[in-house]
Design a protein around this nucleic acid. Structure first.
Lengths: 262, 262
DNA sequence: AGGAACTCAGTACGACGTACGGAAAAGGGA
DNA sequence: TCCCTTTTCCGTACGTCGTACTGAGTTCCT
């Protein structure tokens, strides 16, 4: 199917062409020894990843270009390609590194506390690295930090005593929930800081909408909720609220499947 | 409260420069009359939006460029700018149009059925238009179809009898949940069809990982779940499963807040 | 010492969004 | 009828992007 560089023999040390994944795996799991033959490297892989995260944090993920990262490091753009196969792969490494900061819960706690801590860690990870949300990742990077966190979440959910099948579902559910809520919350705050457009300006520019097209008859419920002030009051703890409902539901499931002690 | 376009002299036909939002609102809510003076337009706004959706469906959202959409319509690239202020705005119009297909539940049903139908409609919308997931939208496009669907969801949740505050939270929760799950499911299937890389090839390229770095000792829970076959068995009904847990949790909340009949 | 292996980076190509300006088409007023 | 204003269509061009290619310079091994 693809395409270029079919010729490269697999023995080449970092042939990040053909089976793209293979060398990503290597980069994620054991970054190659500095080098044997050539000149000393001016940078380390870690520095490149950190520069990428710095650029994403400072200017937004849209500005995460090879040229920008290289400039941030004081090297030529093309030099980065000795450390990293390409932009997407750099991004994947950044993602795995973001997951590295996730703390794991105390294993002696009840399962619900552990799962909640996992969710809160995920939430603060998205707050800390909003560009994770824009992550146009086809799939999760199979990195060590990602997998360690996932494994521990599965372990915590397993404490419920649910069968494996439900464990897989619940764990996925928790991660998805946090991501979904994070997306709808983070974009608001992070966009305004990255583009010049503040939230106020945005709503001002949209203000003609309220006078012209919005009608209380067409949107009675939203109007009522809005005027009650409930939107403001409900803002801020979406994560906790959703998590509480969700885990309540899981507890019900546990009881239903194993009504041992009641 | 109303009034209108204070600075921009209303005479300007489509000044989509300065307060970007204003004309987006106009485009979303009442597409301007064909024209008065100049030559006949070769296209309609609807055609442009549909061409955008066609390109996104056929080649993936990464290929959604002004040039591609224009080529698909047989016009020059710059011609599109008479219909649409720019690429991002075209995308916003596409999003609102995708929401247009969402059916609304029968209002005589119990609230839970109505909310479930909303969730299922959202889910099939994401399946139908996977590019909605990549939608790097800072904010929801304030379009009529989006708002109609939201309003109806709020209305359905209001049937629970919960206070406004919780209604807002629950509605947001349902949308976020579906989005979160959709993201983790859709990317798998839609990526493989848009890039040449099938899922099998992907895993093959990653296969060196399993032999080399994956260790049962480091990931015991994932190993156990995997070997039990639970991952396969649990796949496919993540939406329904999560929705069930979530709404169970909401029912608990209803009882807790209003323990009228028990 | 000589060559192999490697790093760094300049140049270049094709894609992108879109600003600008010109040609041509249509309607309204004379 | 003619002309002028308005509007459409779009070719060209600029700045951005990822990255292929190439070559110059650096280090180690034999």
């Amino acid at each position: 199917m693809n395409d270029e560089r079919p010729t490269v023999p697999d023995t080449d040390p970092l042939t990040w062409g053909t089976p793209e994944g293979r060398h990503m795996i290597r980069l994620l799991w054991d970054p190659p020894a500095p080098a044997g033959r050539g000149p000393k490297q001016k940078l380390t892989l870690d520095q490149v990843i950190e520069a990428g995260m710095a650029v994403a944090a400072a200017d937004g993920v849209d500005k995460l270009s090879m040229r920008n990262v290289a400039a941030h490091l004081g090297v030529g753009a093309m030099s980065l390609y000795t450390y990293v196969p390409g932009r997407d792969e750099l991004f994947e490494l950044m993602v795995d590194r973001a997951w590295a900061a996730r703390r794991l819960p105390d294993r002696s706690l009840p399962w619900r506390d552990q799962v909640e801590l996992h969710a809160r860690e995920a939430w603060s990870m998205y707050q800390l690295y909003p560009w994770l949300i824009r992550a146009n990742l086809w799939r999760m990077p199979l990195g060590p930090h990602v997998l360690d966190a996932q494994e521990d979440l599965y372990r915590a959910v397993l404490l419920t005593g649910l069968p494996y099948e439900e464990v897989a579902r619940v764990a996925g559910l928790v991660e998805s929930h946090v991501f979904g809520v994070a997306r709808s919350l983070i974009t608001d705050t992070s966009m305004s800081s990255n583009t010049g457009v503040t939230a106020d300006e945005y709503w001002d520019s949209r203000s003609s909408f309220w006078g012209t097209y919005y009608s209380r008859e067409r949107f009675p419920t939203m109007t009522a909720i809005w005027e009650s002030g409930a939107f403001e009051r409900s803002a801020g703890d979406e994560i906790e609220f959703g998590l509480a409902r969700l885990l309540d539901g899981v507890e019900l499931l546990i009881e239903k499947l194993a009504p041992s002690n009641s």
